[in-house]
Nucleic acid binder design. Structure first.
Lengths: 226, 226, 226, 226
DNA sequence: CATGAATGAGAGTTCATTCAT
DNA sequence: GATGAATGAACTCTCATTCAT
């Protein structure tokens, strides 16, 4: 990188979510914005923030780089768009709440499997996530976004833990909040350690699940009996 | 026709480990190099790769930016220096092997505590590590360096696991390698999730330790008796 | 590890004739390119390659130096443009073939006069030519361009020599190819020796013409009779 | 080239011959200076002024680049040294005056042969000469040096012409000064056109010699008889 | 005498951004 | 709405030169 992105630092309006600058959300316009965000997302996955260039994003989106500035007021606004996009994907990919139809153990196992599948199918997502987490360490605004996201994730996990304990599927001594933290951070760490090798995440996650069930839990005992 | 001369004369040796280019450095010179790497390290922690500027590193090191090029052939070489530095620190901060004097459980607990302390005392280190891991996802050479580092770390953990199982301090059903993977990735994830809040890492790590000990292990039983 | 990103991303295609990179240029754009080449040409004449600076060329062309990079991908490409320009001028300033209307002797004399006039009117051209020939001694690609140009020039001269011999205007013993070599190199040498004093080239060129005619040639005899 | 030579243009003391700045010409010191000039000469031949770097010259001379500044006050002074060197070589390689022992025709033929041999043996010399002539077009001081050199060369040639005419070895109608100009410029031009192919210079020079002798001159007649 | 260290001016190049069309 | 042209600030890197040792 010769010239950097951060060239014109601008007043820095704490950024990260002052969207709504362009209120004319015609359907076509919104579609274009989505395409651009997608292009930015891919570029970010491949080059990182360090190598993220407006011109490349524009080219990938099939538009002129000037046109890009028509849809997004600047690089920061575009990055905000990418963050929004990924946060939405994250929300979609995660159960909003404990499903009463399936048991907690099954639910958690399903959650883990979903994560593994996602890493197999869209590995770029995890690359971008690490990139963003890295940036979040320096940008409070972004950190706040992830914190909020984590709270939602953790909420689901805590709910699942409590249900599991109650139904005697999980270890009784489990502290739901601590277990949720372990799950979140382990997944996060695994996506770095085993980047691009989703299959390798399986056994560690299984191990975690076993621990959560505990030796004497009903489900564990049942499975042992089988 | 090669129009202008010597514009970018570097053969570009794909770099990454042609250290020893400046082998016989006087003590003072080596000291300067260390200072510069330290400055680069701090700058990287604060600005990330995205905002890493030679001029700022130089200013931080208290030298002219061209002097910086006297010590390091270019930005790449300097970054290699930072990577070397952090990898060394990593090696130093980690037990090389299982200590026979203390029990495996104590050893592991000590390891976790050391990590927490390190995150309290040098939080930048973890910021830089995430930055580097992020970059490693795109750069095989860097990935290889971390892979090697992980192997050493995992080696120690596996050894500890085996010793713990043998001495009946750890769960007998434990698969040492899987447990080691869990530990490494959990620590990695925690350093992101709880960046700057080292204390919050404690309970998740304790939970992990309990799981590793298992309910019926001797040490757990002993501690329960007390 | 590729430390910094995109620092020198150019694949460096060894260049020299990847023209047509910007093929479909609007008339205005092409005009600008011509202006820039002209500015580069003038700067080269005044400062030589040694003192050729992108910023000065830009200033001379009345544009920002970064705009210059909009039209030419780099210094090399710009220099290639200058070479193209001068080679074209060279081709234009030289009869493509022997004109049947005028006699060979007259044709050659006219050629010499044209050269003298050109040196009077555009002395920079010869300065640039020497600069380029100097560079060609080290750059095979440029040498090839001049070799091609020389072949065309020599072709015309050989044709003229042959016609002159046949029409008994030139010495019968003349070896056309050798004479052509003499002409080309003498002109080249005169433009150095008498740089900026075009008039001084006249007598040497007349002497050469006399020698080519020879003592007993018809035209010489005729002129002597008059 | 990124940074240029001409970086610190300095008052420009019209340069080109203010030597004697370092009066302590101990034998050893003078020897060193000669070595450095030789190194600069070679580098100039290979890279041209455009690529001439003090550090490379120093390395080639086997000394530190700082030491080079001890022997030469700066780049300009060193270049002056190279010019002096080549001008001396030029003087040595050329008969100071007409040799009465051998006939003028023989003398001239010998002169041409000597030039061809020199181009075979030390082609770099001609590369450097073109480089210097190119620069002389922009630097009056250097131009003056070459003018002086040319006067000496021309003096010898005129003398030879006159002797040849008198002894009836050369064409009676020859104008010695014009013929001398032709010789000088032809040689100059040939060294460019046939750079690195000294043998190709032979026939053009023979042609010139024949013309100078003229058809009916005694020597030509004699040779024809043989 | 010689050198390692340091400097500063400036080079080519990049890139986000703006503006007129 | 879209684009080609233009900008300027900032970047990495180079090099002749100087200075303390």
């Amino acid at each position: 990188m010769k010239a950097s992105n951060v060239i014109h630092p601008k007043p820095k309006t704490t950024s990260t979510s002052n969207k709504s600058l362009k209120p004319d959300h015609s359907a076509k316009s919104n579609e274009r914005r989505r395409e651009i965000v997608q292009a930015a997302y891919q570029t970010l996955a491949e080059k990182g923030f360090e190598g993220l260039r407006m011109r490349e994003i524009a080219k990938r989106a099939g538009i002129d780089h000037s046109t890009l500035h028509y849809y997004f007021s600047g690089k920061e606004a575009l990055i905000d768009g990418v963050v929004d996009h990924i946060v939405q994907d994250l929300a979609i990919g995660r159960p909003a709440t404990q499903n009463v139809e399936v048991g907690p153990r099954e639910q958690l196992a399903g959650h883990f499997n979903a994560l593994i599948r996602q890493m197999e199918q869209t590995p770029e997502m995890f690359v971008v996530l690490v990139e963003l987490h890295s940036r979040a360490m320096r940008e409070p605004a972004l950190r706040a976004i992830f914190a909020k996201n984590d709270r939602a994730w953790k909420g689901f996990l805590v709910e699942t833990m409590e249900a599991g304990i109650q139904k005697d599927e999980f270890q009784a001594t489990l502290v739901p909040e601590v277990a949720a933290d372990v799950i979140i951070s382990l997944v996060r760490g695994l996506s770095i350690t085993f980047a691009g090798r989703a299959a390798s995440m399986q056994r560690p996650l299984e191990q975690l699940l076993h621990w959560i069930e505990g030796e004497g839990s009903r489900s564990a005992a049942q499975r042992a009996r089988r």
